[in-house]
Design a protein around this nucleic acid. Sequence first.
DNA 1: TAGCTTTTGAAACTCAATTTCAGTGGCTTG
DNA 2: CAAGCCACTGAAATTGAGTTTCAAAAGCTA
Lengths: 141, 141
Amino acid sequence: MDRASVFNQYLRTKGLKNTRQRMIILETFLDSASHYSTEELYQVLRQDHPRIGYATVHRTLKLFAECGIATELNFGDGQARFEPLYTDHHHDHLVCTRCGKIIEFVEPRIEQLQREVAQRYDFTVESHRHELYGRCIKCSQ
Amino acid sequence: MDRASVFNQYLRTKGLKNTRQRMIILETFLDSASHYSTEELYQVLRQDHPRIGYATVHRTLKLFAECGIATELNFGDGQARFEPLYTDHHHDHLVCTRCGKIIEFVEPRIEQLQREVAQRYDFTVESHRHELYGRCIKCSQ
DNA sequence: TAGCTTTTGAAACTCAATTTCAGTGGCTTG
DNA sequence: CAAGCCACTGAAATTGAGTTTCAAAAGCTA
């Protein structure tokens, strides 16, 4: 089941409504490969849909996170970011502190060591956050 | 050189002043094993020193981070936290999402893998953030 | 001690996030 | 397919952490 269907089904089961705005925001969000903040997505949407308000974008992104088709990221710049979630493709992030570029990485050995650490402290992991901050190749010259 | 001396020396070199408030805040901060937010440290200080203002606590914590005796943490609850920094003792965190307990962990093999990942993308790491969120043993029953 | 400069604390301000509310518009039922 | 309920929308107001302002207070240096 694709993410649009997951979202629509979530709306149904919660008794929420399938509105024009929500569909436009969903489409724009899924089309992008980007890690949008609310403000950034709002600005992109405004180009074609100037009537859609900031609050609606914000509420809709929250809904995406609630129904599991997006995750909320926070890179410490004071703005939450959202990315479309691929359940079969977990990854973490390299964040360039100069140009803002975000690189995704996968390292199963780190995931394994995380599980070991959690076990060591009798801790049940629900989620994690792992980011490396520094300079991407372009910005380190 | 202990952390109080590092701070005092930092004040000197920057032409800043060694004030009563700064010394009280430093002492209280270092005495605690805790990961205080500005608000929390402010509340603790208020008990014995009701005249110290929130802004002063905030500015002083920033100074601690600047001079390297503390690090700023962010666990995604919208409040920055600060912890005394031991330069010879890097660690990451397990954060209980129920009771807020914070457990520190050290896993050199993860650090090593991080370096490998960075190299893979020609990325120069300046810092990183690694947190596991879930239930501590008390809260998982 | 004088005098210059930084600091302090209260209050104001900033900015993203969130809430409010009156008007709008899906959706379901008869 | 019309009526009516209830969620939704968007603008504006509010919240809350963080930051800045400013006049009075307090360090520091000569």
